[in-house]
Design a protein around this nucleic acid. Structure first.
Lengths: 255, 255
DNA sequence: CGGTGGGTTGAACGGCGTCAAACCTAGTGG
DNA sequence: CCACTAGGTTTGACGCCGTTCAACCCACCG
């Protein structure tokens, strides 16, 4: 367990991380970043990569539990998660909050702020995390010069929309077990993309947060976990999840 | 009633629409379009507007019930609704379909296709409609030359995400009456933006489609309508809706 | 070792889905 | 102009899934 936990952190962050404080003036260097194929700089050549490096001039540390940005704050930059994990939450007019997504290394944060120059959601670090700060006006002007970057940006935004739509369909027409299965499979897949095990991982969010994300109460999440376990589809031990048969779990959501 | 229906069509489409067939070779002319402030060309100057006109070279008629594009079809263009109404639907792995949005005049369709060069949802006309066809590669290259257009595109994509998020929060944590109220208020607001009455309009989608969109069954939609009517919050007569007190309805969803 | 926050489990309730039947409306053809 | 039909809508009865409220448990940490 602590084995998996350790494997989960460290690793794959190739650069030195020995800065104290929450700001780092070191160059971010997409060129060196092991995530850059997942991120905005994927498929760019040497020259263009360096231009992007210019823009991603700053990184920022966010300790566990702190917000990267909050609802209504002015929007200036996009953020790429370097390591760690975030949740984004929107809020209902009456004040209730709901988790709308979990962002891990390589994912982008802040895109929904473009529409009105204000952030529409809150982004909170679920563990000590670091992001690359990408000032958006500079991003836009560089993407005018570099078509590949421009297209990457569009692809990423579009991908975000597709994800939201998928979640939407899930919330609209699936029941508890299907939602949870889809959630686990989604995590599994993203782990795999990042070079980790697809069949075994640690949930770094609480049952509450999972429930909020899936439109369920924490009690239902817990009950459904044990139910899936009784059916032999997953093994749960607190935050540790194992999926012995991915295909079997997939059939539950109909694919 | 037929009074409202008539007001609802016609009007505000300033150009001549006398083309037969489903394709029109006439220039689309954003410059003349009464919607252009809502659409992609908002805020552009004369010169840039003409450049956009070059790209939006084609319009396409979609008769009621027909699909503009389907799931998995190759993505080439974005579409701006000129008049009429569309629904987009995604599908669950098991084949169930769910409505993910309704697009009216000035709204964009197809953005989710960018991420993988394939459409991820189906777009169906709910009444005889017309769209402007905007080839995406040309769109991208023009937006490299015209910063204002580029920013508009980004804003529109971001707006789309914000809408999806709002719906997400709604589906995740609101109950039937709140969902329906939010839906009606959203329609009301969009009508108002387009110059129509905010307090009285025609629902051009079926209860089934509304239910699918809100994650409810058509029966529940119907029941909830009559419940809201009994409470004096709305007046329903088939497809005709009147909201005597917008503020009152807003309090129901907590704002 | 006791405290605290998250997690699990149980029992009772209720909102919404399901199934079924009646109704209403628009469109069609006689 | 009316009868007939097909789709959509409404309404009712019933049952289930997930919520609610509460107690308990467990892991972690001072």
């Amino acid at each position: 367990m602590s084995q998996a936990e350790r494997q989960f952190h460290g690793v794959r962050i190739t650069e030195s991380q020995n800065h104290a404080g929450s700001r780092s003036s070191a160059k971010a260097a997409c060129s060196n970043c092991s995530l850059h194929e997942l991120c905005l700089s994927g498929g760019l050549d040497e020259v263009d990569l360096e231009a992007v490096d210019q823009i991603v001039a700053q990184r920022r540390r966010i300790p566990k539990g702190e917000a990267l940005f909050g609802v209504g704050e002015p929007f200036r930059s996009l953020y790429a998660v370097r390591f760690g994990l975030f949740k984004t939450e929107g809020l209902m007019p009456d004040g209730r909050e709901q988790v709308t997504g979990f962002q891990m290394a390589g994912d982008l944060l802040g895109l929904d702020g473009i529409s009105s120059d204000r952030h529409f959601c809150k982004a909170v670090a679920l563990e000590d995390s670091e992001v690359c700060v990408m000032p958006f006006t500079e991003m836009e002007s560089l993407s005018r010069a570099v078509p590949a970057l421009q297209h990457n940006l569009h692809r990423v935004m579009s991908r975000e929309m597709v994800q939201d739509r998928n979640l939407l369909v899930l919330l609209g027409s699936a029941q508890a077990a299907e939602r949870l299965a889809a959630f686990l499979l989604n995590l599994s897949q993203r782990q795999a993309q990042r070079g980790y095990s697809a069949s075994e991982f640690i949930l770094r969010m609480t049952r509450d947060e999972i429930g909020s994300y899936l439109g369920l109460t924490p009690e239902t999440v817990s009950r459904t976990f044990t139910k899936l376990q009784k059916n032999g589809l997953i093994e749960v031990a607190q935050k540790h999840i194992r999926i012995p048969d991915l295909a079997a779990l997939r059939t539950l959501i109909g694919c």
